[in-house]
Amino acid sequence: MRFVRYTDGSSPSWGVQKESTIHALSDLPQGEPDLGDIGNSSYRSEIATLVEHGTLTQVDTAAVSLLAPVPQPGKIICCGLNYRDHAEEQDEEIPERPMLFGKAATSVTNPGDPIVHPDPDGEEQVDYEVELGVVVGERCKDVSESEAYDHIAGYTIINDVSGRTAQQSDGQFFRGKSYDTFAPMGPTLVAGDGFDPNNVDVEMRVDGEVKQASNTDQFIFDVGDLVSYISQAMTLRPGDVISTGTPGGVGIFRDPVEVLEPGQTTEAEIEGIGTLTNTVVSK
């Protein structure tokens, strides 16, 4: 089931998207769902019945703007070198445990909104990274790999936009990963057993040209591994987001280097979730 946050110019709302139609969840007596509801199979079953019978108000997707499913994450936890081909293109050994780093929550931006290049006339090299995003729906701490999935609300797309110059000069990732607008997220939040996060195609296109193409079956650490590992160190709360890493083909490791410039458009696509489209603009 594909959930969306959207707006028609008024307050944000939740809905369920089927093809080009959104079924509005604001109609429900209990009001808008939270992430715990979305991760609950009984809730999804109830909503599926209402959608099937056409009970809910229907909205054309063309008449609204889609929003990031989690506009203000409690924390964004990223995993580096989680695809074998990405490790290989950097001549890095396959890691024995997840390599984690953070990204500021204020970097989140909506589908269709611009990625703002922080230094188009200077030295900052802005790169793209298509990633599967895991959204926590229920508090978890010290969970096993098998238990981890019970605490997930759903899955979305993150474009882990990266300022490579800042990343390299700082010797760590946080500043270069955290410029405002450097975490486009969406367009949907997919929940339910019909989606296997560890076996879906992922692709990044820039101006229509494929730059990254892989499948999450190439994960070094799958979703259960990551959630369990992170939960051993810190409590995960509803609204926390885990960005699971990117495959090979990023711009900084291409020969010649290919980084993003104002006017270019990125399309991050993940099978079953949709396509997240954003255009780079000058600051």
Rank of each mutant, 00 (worst) to 15 (best):
W14L: 09
V16N: 03
E19F: 00
P29L: 12
P33N: 14
P33Q: 12
D34W: 03
G36E: 07
I38L: 07
I38G: 10
G39N: 07
S42D: 11
I47A: 05
I47P: 05
A48H: 10
L50H: 12
V51N: 02
H53V: 02
T55L: 11
Q58R: 15
A62I: 13
V70W: 08
P71S: 11
G74Y: 08
I76F: 02
G80Y: 11
Y83G: 13
R84Y: 00
A87T: 01
A87Y: 01
E88W: 05
Q90A: 06
Q90P: 00
E92Y: 07
E93V: 05
E96C: 01
A105H: 13
A105Q: 13
T106D: 01
S107C: 10
D113I: 05
D113H: 12
I115V: 11
V116M: 01
G122C: 04
E123A: 12
E124P: 00
V135Q: 02
V135I: 08
G137N: 13
K141C: 03
D142E: 04
V143R: 00
S146F: 03
E147P: 02
Y149A: 10
H151G: 06
I152G: 06
A153C: 08
A153Y: 03
I158M: 05
I158Y: 05
R164H: 08
Q167W: 04
K177G: 06
K177M: 02
D180R: 15
T188E: 00
V190I: 06
G192M: 03
V206T: 06
G208K: 04
Q212S: 04
F219L: 14
F221W: 03
V223M: 10
D225H: 15
D225F: 09
L226C: 05
S228K: 06
S228G: 04
L236M: 14
R237E: 15
P238A: 05
V241N: 05
S243A: 15
P247Q: 06
P247C: 11
V250C: 03
D255F: 04
E258K: 13
E261M: 11
G263K: 14
E267R: 02
A268I: 02
E269T: 13
I270Y: 13
N278Q: 01
T279K: 15
T279Y: 11
K283A: 14
